[in-house]
Amino acid sequence: MQELNFPKYEFRFKSNENKVSIFDGIRKKFIVLQPEEWVRQHCVQYLIQHKNYPQSLINVEKELKVNGLSKRYDIVIFNTDGSIHLIVECKSHNIKIDQTTFDQIARYNLSLNATYLMVTNGINHYYCRMDFENERYEFLKDIPSYIKSTN
């Protein structure tokens, strides 16, 4: 697979009927290894190992309704109160991230109301913080690491 702009991680693979699968520790199953899944698995490991987000607060590939249409988000990190801290949109390494990608995650966020957004193709990573009051997002150099709530 393509080398990505993430640290190196250890993954479990299996091969079946000429298809390679990668183990997803969040979904607790093997997923067919496609380029976007390769990016998603690296991003999940980055969030757990480098940003210290607990695995229990991470959700991967779930359906949501946007304007009555069924969509699937890539990665969501919840706050301990159940609100959404971060949405991540993953693209294959060969997909250029452009305004369309940001429009997609912004549409998802109309339903989810996450504080932070991340868009990555595994090579380029973009981070934003939502400014709900002014209905815009502010680009950041990185997303914050997990800080355990003391409430």
Rank of each mutant, 00 (worst) to 15 (best):
V44G: 02
V88N: 05
E138K: 07
T120Y: 05
R107V: 13
N124C: 01
K65R: 14
N59V: 07
V60R: 01
L140I: 09
F6C: 06
C90A: 09
E61M: 00
P35R: 00
E89Y: 04
N109L: 00
R129G: 04
K19E: 10
E3G: 08
M130D: 01
R107W: 12
E138G: 00
F139D: 11
R72L: 11
K51R: 13
Y108P: 09
E63Y: 06
V20G: 03
I84E: 06
E135F: 12
E138Q: 10
N134H: 15
V76L: 12
E135C: 08
N18R: 14
V39I: 11
Q45V: 03
S70W: 06
R72T: 08
K19Q: 10
E36N: 06
K141F: 09
I147T: 15
P144S: 06
N151K: 14
S15K: 12
S111D: 13
V66Q: 01
A106M: 13
D81P: 07
H85N: 15
S15L: 05
V119W: 04
D81S: 13
H42S: 11
Y53N: 02
Q49I: 04
I48S: 10
G122M: 05
T100F: 07
L4R: 06
Y127E: 12
L117A: 01
N59A: 00
N113R: 12
P7I: 07
Q104K: 07
